[in-house]
């Protein structure tokens, strides 16, 4: 079988930029979580955290360079988890 995908080589610079973005987002998360009122900190935690996870998945875990079917598989797995969480919150909010 001929090799369909040689590993995509990502430059050092790209990785360092992603790492810097992750560090900055962590800083923002801490500031939002510790210094401000809950009305601001909760939405910040709920947006910045998935964004950080997304950066790791997309760049460090190479999803950006993967074929669509692997991305699709990840989407289905995370989608399933999101459905579980949504059903849980629906259940909790109508109790």
């Amino acid at each position: 079988m001929t090799e369909p995908t040689s590993e995509h080589v990502v430059s050092y610079g790209t990785y360092v930029r992603v790492w810097m973005a992750l560090v900055v987002l962590t800083g923002l998360l801490v500031v939002a979580g510790r210094l401000y009122h809950e009305s601001l900190s909760v939405p910040a935690l709920l947006t910045i955290t998935p964004l950080k996870a997304g950066l790791v998945l997309y760049f460090f875990m190479h999803l950006r360079y993967e074929r669509p079917y692997i991305r699709g598989m990840v989407f289905v797995a995370l989608g399933t988890l999101t459905v579980f969480l949504s059903v849980l919150f629906l259940d909790l909010s109508f109790r």
Binding site: V30, V42, V56, F60, M61
Partner: peptide, 23 residues
């Protein structure tokens, strides 16, 4: 092996706000 290591990182990214920051 790298994918595994990065996933450990992703899980910690979620543990941080859950336990340390949402107070």
């Amino acid at each position: 092996a790298g994918l595994y290591w990065h996933l450990i990182d992703v899980i910690w990214i979620f543990l941080l706000p859950l336990f340390y920051l949402a107070a």
